[in-house]
């Protein structure tokens, strides 16, 4: 049996995040486990998660550069 794919949505615009959640939840086998607004919030969330997500749906166009850069720097520190 194929287990559910756990997805985190990282999106600063709540309207877009909401649409993305609805679009993902329409697909069988995918589950949105969390919505995060910023890079720092996401990293904090991931650090305290017991089970890491299978997929991160990440908005690459952020109004502040610091979020994109933060991901770039911290991304490699998590086990895959």
């Amino acid at each position: 049996m194929i287990s559910t794919i756990r997805v985190i949505i990282v999106e600063d615009d709540f309207r877009v995040a909401k649409i993305n959640r609805q679009l993902i939840e329409q697909i069988a086998g995918y589950e949105v486990v969390s919505e995060q607004r910023t890079a720092s919030e996401t990293i904090a969330f991931l650090r305290q998660s017991e089970v890491l997500p299978d997929l991160i749906l990440l908005d690459v166009t952020y109004p502040t550069a610091r979020d994109s850069i933060y991901f770039g720097v911290c991304g490699g520190n998590f086990p895959t």
Binding site: D13, R15, V16, I19, N20, Q22, L23, Q26, T61, P63
Partner: peptide, 29 residues
């Protein structure tokens, strides 16, 4: 730049709602 970004997000929202067949929500939005 921020207006463009905002506009793109709004268009995306409209597109998403349309794909989800939520016609009334599109109009409300």
């Amino acid at each position: 730049r921020s207006q463009t970004h905002e506009f793109a997000n709004k268009l995306y929202t409209i597109m998403g709602l349309t794909q989800l067949n939520k016609k009334d929500e599109v109009l409300d939005f």
